[in-house]
Design a protein around this nucleic acid. Structure first.
Length: 157
DNA sequence: GCCAACGTTGGC
DNA sequence: GCCAACGTTGGC
């Protein structure tokens, strides 16, 4: 069995917040609309059922981590790409030759305490996170150590 | 609103 | 294949 990995996914709360996810049927949603190859590869190839996700609010005031989710369905074609009425249509992607992929995630728990980016940047052990290194990647890997540190920050008062 | 960082596009 | 131009992300 492959080693269990951890992830972080960004969302702009104005567009789709952690609360929106918890309000879905079974707290589960398709993570559609990602149009970046590196993030696509991660969702298509690397994310496995049962692995943990830190849900992060980007472009928020302030930005930060708000809770955890879990991968409940592994990578499959993002059908919104060939829907001209979707928010992120890509005519080059077709059902026969899909370019973009998504996963399904399910909300697990909201942090007791919001963990702002400012604090993540100041916390020893988190300095190598893509988040801190100014990466724009919307789906990023998180090490076990980083996962443990952030959950400790978020789950303790 | 500004702008740095970064990814993508397209001319050559 | 290089790289300038352009568009987007996202913190501040």
């Amino acid at each position: 069995m492959a080693e269990r990995r951890y992830w972080l996914m960004k969302s702009e709360p104005n567009a789709y917040s952690f609360t929106d996810l918890t309000n879905e049927d079974d707290s589960t949603a398709e993570w559609d609309g990602v149009r970046n190859y590196q993030a696509r590869n991660t969702m298509r190839d690397d994310m496995k059922q049962g692995e943990g996700v830190i849900f992060y609010h980007s472009n928020a005031k302030p930005p930060g981590a708000v809770g955890t989710a879990v991968i409940v369905r592994e990578g499959y074609p993002d059908n919104t790409a060939w829907d001209p009425d979707s928010e992120h249509p890509d005519p080059k992607s077709t059902p026969e030759n899909p370019i973009w992929y998504m996963v399904d995630i399910k909300a697990v728990s909201e942090f007791k305490r919001f963990v702002p980016l400012r604090e993540i940047k100041e916390t020893p052990g988190l300095e190598n996170m893509p988040l801190v290194k100014n990466s724009r990647l919307s789906v990023q890997p998180v090490s076990k150590e980083e996962w443990d540190i952030i959950l400790e920050l978020g789950m303790n008062d």
